[in-house]
Design a binder for these strands. Sequence first.
RNA 1: GUGAGUGUCGCCUAGCGGUCUAAGGCGCCAGGUUGUGGCCCUGGAGAGCGUGGGUUCAAAUCCCUCCACUCACCCCA
Length: 423
Amino acid sequence: MRRSALYRAPRGTSDILPQEQAYWRYIEQKAVSTTQLYGYERIDCPVFEGTQLFDRSVGEDTDIVEKEMYTFEDRGGNSITLRPEGTAPVCRAYLEHGMHNWPQPVKLYYLTSIFRYERPQAGRYREHHQFGCEAIGDSDPALDAEVIDLAWQLLYSLGLHRITLQINSIGCKDCRPAYLAILKEYYAHGTPDLCPDCQARVVRNPLRLLDCKNPQCQSVADAAPKSVDHLCPQCQEHFSRLKEYLGLLSLPFRINHRLVRGLDYYTRTVFEIQPEAEGSQTTILGGGRYDDLIEQLGGKPTPAIGFATGLERIVLNLKREGVPIPPLPRPQVFIVYLGDAAKAKAIKQTAALRRKNIGALTAPGGKSLKAQMRQANALGIHYAVIIGEQELQTGTMILRDMTTAEQQTIPGEQLEDWLTARR
RNA sequence: GUGAGUGUCGCCUAGCGGUCUAAGGCGCCAGGUUGUGGCCCUGGAGAGCGUGGGUUCAAAUCCCUCCACUCACCCCA
């Protein structure tokens, strides 16, 4: 038993410890710098929203709304939900702040925690973190291509090279009903033994029939009518232009006729990026167009497209692929002292260096010289400075390079310059 | 919601009915002469074996309960 662990992080949540932070900082920095290249600006929305926002946008028949939301009543009696996805809040903000008056499309990115009540497993948590981009206010397939390009470049530049891009078009509100009718018709005939889930889907959410993973449904779904064969002329045009633009960008995409997504708001373009490696959590990044969402939320008809990617899954894949991660910066110098007079000097010197933006440490407590040196070494500090009686009297310091074990004595007043030169 | 697996010091692991007042490695702390790290050596702190119950003369070791965690299904990032 862990006596020290009377309290534990709630199921499906985890502490991101210092030794993991290099991964997170790496991804964050790359995400920020990459999106800047495409003109995105950051937005941070509240951790919770009114429950209705998600009911309306994500779709009441989706798993997320049906059984995965953290919903509760606040003290004022309002139904509140911890955000289970990032797009709806951004759209809410778009409307609330009149962003339709900004230059269109409005390009926003977010980096936040997401909450879903699920059974945790590898790459799936109750609290996880998503990085997402939304481009709101333009329907040009060139924008679709640009967003997909951004998603691809982000993952690729992180060092994930063994990835695949899949796209599909699931039509719009004009042509999808007819397609769904055809799909239902197909499933109504000649489909002897569907899994129980699919039997329910035929009525409730026929599009989802296509991505059923149940073996007995595979062949049926494979041979099902394809959405791309039943697009209206506008959607057809949109999709073929998209493919053309993706070609221009040299993005190696594959059309997956069975790619549909689990949120109801998607229209036309949907896409996913998956790692080539085996594993249960196949989707590392997913997104698509949602041309009707803003209108559904009470705005004017406003086309939009976006994607989101799970940071935990990126970390998982970075580790699996053995991608080298740049280490986080450490203090440059550790000041070691001998005796009380030297300790006072060390404290002053450490503070002075910090005020000059040089990371510096000194050991609290009455540690021996040996212990201080050990600590400097264990922390991976590049330089040690030693101040003892002799140095105090001569106004010098011993400067030791911990990586080469070379050391020299320098005048104390030169320390700052010396370190600055070697930063 | 369903299924499978696991549960011994901070981490990893040994022990599989008595020799366990539980062992080792990593890590941590302190030393290895007088002012110096990494290797090496010595010592120290640190668990009573997830929980409750049962079987037994005897349980970390067998059985059951519950709990937790992990993995997988579903779905999603």
